[in-house]
C-alpha cells in the first residue's frame, strides 16, 4: 500500500457510513501515519542488502496505539555480512523502542537471511519461523527501512513459489498451501503458548477468532477468485492482491463473484473487534482474565458475541464461494 488505505469506495458500495466502520478507518489512518513517521525516523538505519519491515497489525494497516510491533529485518547473504545485519536489527529495534513502541523479541528476534527463508520450503529445515516470515512478508509486510531492497525481497519471496517448475501448480497452490499451513500453525501455536509457555490466553483467543480468521478467509477468497481468471492473469492478480488489507482482499474477490454485499457483515463485526482492541481497559481486562472466570466477564461475553457475529458473516462468505467457485474451494481449500 503506497498511501493510506482507502476504504471509502467499499463503504459506499456496501451502503455503510464512515461511522459504521469508524475503527477500521481510524486504524488505517493511524497505521499509515505511524508508518510514515517511522520511515522518516529510520532513514539510513539499515545498510544496502538489508531491509526492515513491520509485520502484524501495523503491516495490515489495522494497528492502534496499543498494538505491539513485529519487526522483521531481512538481508541477502552475500550482499551483507550476517553480523552487520544483526547489528542493523538491534539498531532499528532500539530506535523503535526509544519512540515508545513495544518491539517483541520472539519470532523476529534477529535478522534473517532471505536465502534461508527460500532455500528449503517444505523441507526438513523449513521452520515455523521461516514459514511465518514468508507468509507475513507477502501478506502484511510494510517496509520500515530501505524500501528498494524491501520491494525486491518481497518479489523474491513471491517468485520462490511462481518459479517452481513442477510444483507451483496451475493455481499457484504451492503458495496457497503454504498460507493455509501458516494459518493452521498459528492455531496450534495458540495451544503451546497458553498451555506450555504460560502466555495470556484471552487476547490470543479473540485474535484467532477475528484477525487471524479474516486473514485466512481473505486468502481463501482471493485464491478462489484467482482460479477463475485466465492463466496468464493469475500471478499478477495474486501479487497485487496479497499485500492488501484482508477486508479489501475479500471485497475484491467477492465483487466479481456477485457477493460483495456479504462484506457488510464482516466490516461491522471486524470494526467492533478493532474498537475493543483499541480500548486500554478492554486489553487490561483480557490480560487479567482467568479462563475459568470468563463467563462472568462482561468483556469476554461482549467479544465472544462479536466473534459469533463475525463467524456468521464469514460463513456466509464461504457459502458464497462454495456456490461460485466450488471446484477450487473444495479441491484446494479443503481437500
Amino acid at each position: 500500500m503506497r498511501g493510506p488505505v482507502d476504504y471509502s469506495p467499499l463503504l459506499t458500495e456496501l451502503g455503510l457510513s464512515a461511522a459504521d466502520a469508524a475503527h477500521v478507518l481510524a486504524a488505517a489512518a493511524g497505521s499509515h501515519a505511524r508508518l510514515a513517521e517511522l520511515r522518516r525516523a529510520l532513514v539510513g538505519a539499515v545498510p544496502a542488502g538489508c531491509a526492515a519491515f513491520a509485520l502484524g497489525s501495523l503491516g495490515r494497516h489495522e494497528s492502534s496505539a496499543l498494538s505491539d510491533l513485529d519487526l522483521a529485518v531481512v538481508y541477502r547473504r552475500g550482499a551483507l555480512d550476517p553480523a552487520d545485519a544483526h547489528r542493523a536489527r538491534d539498531t532499528v529495534a532500539a530506535a523503535l523502542r526509544a519512540r515508545g513502541l513495544d518491539v517483541a523479541d520472539k519470532t523476529f528476534h534477529s535478522a534473517v537471511a532471505l536465502d534461508d527463508l527460500l532455500g528449503d520450503i517444505g523441507g526438513r529445515d523449513d521452520s515455523n519461523d521461516h514459514l511465518t516470515y514468508r507468509a507475513l512478508l507477502l501478506t502484511e509486510g510494510a517496509w520500515l527501512a530501505n524500501a528498494a531492497d524491501a520491494a525486491a525481497i518481497v518479489e523474491q519471496v513471491f517468485g520462490a513459489y511462481t518459479a517452481g517448475a513442477i510444483t507451483r501448480g496451475r493455481y499457484l497452490t504451492s503458495l496457497s498451501n503454504d498460507l493455509h499451513r501458516y494459518y493452521r500453525t498459528i492455531c496450534v501455536d495458540y495451544r503451546f503458548k497458553v498451555e506450555n509457555a504460560g502466555k495470556h490466553w484471552a487476547v490470543r483467543y479473540f485474535k484467532l477468532r477475528h484477525s487471524r480468521k479474516l486473514w485466512h478467509l481473505a486468502n481463501l477468497a482471493v485464491f478462489c477468485r484467482a482460479a477463475l481468471l485466465p492463466d496468464e492473469a493469475r500471478d499478477g492478480w495474486l501479487a497485487e492482491q496479497l499485500p492488501r488489507p484482508p477486508l479489501l482482499r475479500v471485497a475484491d474477490a467477492l465483487r466479481p463473484l456477485g457477493g460483495l454485499h456479504l462484506c457488510a457483515g464482516l466490516v461491522n463485526a471486524y470494526d467492533a473487534f478493532l474498537a475493543a482492541l483499541a480500548e486500554p481497559d478492554t486489553r487490561r481486562a483480557l490480560d487479567l482474565l482467568a479462563y475459568d472466570l470468563r463467563e462472568a466477564s462482561p468483556v469476554f461475553r461482549r467479544l465472544r458475541a462479536g466473534a459469533e457475529r463475525f463467524d456468521e458473516a464469514a460463513t456466509a462468505v464461504v457459502g458464497h464461494l462454495w456456490q461460485r467457485s466450488p471446484d477450487h474451494l473444495v479441491r484446494y481449500g479443503l481437500l
Binding site: 508508518l35 510514515a36 520511515r39 520491494a151
Partner: peptide
C-alpha cells in the same frame, strides 16, 4: 526502478 513513493513517508498525503 526505484522506491519509495513520496506517499509512503507522508503521514497525510495530499493528492
Amino acid at each position: 526502478l526505484a522506491e519509495p513513493s513520496w506517499r509512503e513517508i507522508d503521514g497525510a498525503p495530499d493528492r
